[in-house]
Amino acid sequence: MIAVRDFTYTYPAAPRPALIDINLEIAPGQFVGVVGANGAGKSTLCYALSGFIPDFYRGDVKGSLSVAGRDLCKTPVAELAGEVGLVFANPFNQITGARFTVREELAFGLENLGRPRDEMVARVDEALRLTGLTELADRSPYALSGGQQQRVAIASVIVLRPKVLVLDEPTSQLDPVGAREVFETLDALTGEGATVILAEHKLEWIAAHADRVIALRGGRVAADGTPREVLADASAEELGLMPTRYTLAARLAATQGVVKRDGPLPVTLDEAREFFGGRQREGA
């Protein structure tokens, strides 16, 4: 689905590249978490995977980056709507302002693609349902909470049925309630088999949901594997990643000899149960 080859990118007027020698293959339907410290290149990778580099950001590109065989670096970003979709942190800036209701905001992209009205109505209804916005369809997008606005942003992109959905820290400007709404929405979407790339600091959520984690440091891929391989590894902290509470508890238990077990540390609740002996009380 996605193939990145020797990809190096420098922003205009920047002294050094933001991404260096990136090589990635991402299979259709994969849910990939992108992690790393601030400035590691997470956002830049997201912009590249959604076609904004170099068409929108300009700058200097080496190597290639393609989605479903289409070279993103040689295609204008407006032609890519429907192929790749991008959601980013600030919900307010993602509302186009060009439409007065949530329903019309969702239809905006389809209108620009010139889709027939019947198809538009059906696809908007489906996107409203998937993001749990049906009840709010006739409200002004500006009258919604941050979490609801972010769901509108997600819905406005998935209504275009992109082959790849890229999300750049979609919960970083939301309160805990808003963040949970967004994660629940993403849960529903991955159930639909979409290819999702999610840059995120909330590692516990990534650990529980991603098929694969890519860790970046200084613009390079520093680790790439299953969540357990990447996040429970002793080197994770050097990448600026805060281990999950399950990993921390297990590491403490292992060093103090409470639990004697070989193999990788857990990163999710289920793995922690198994690690701590697999006994599970019903209803606990």
Partner: peptide, 10 residues
Amino acid sequence: MALDARAFSR
């Protein structure tokens, strides 16, 4: 970016 992601300049 949000506009371009919705095919505005197409």
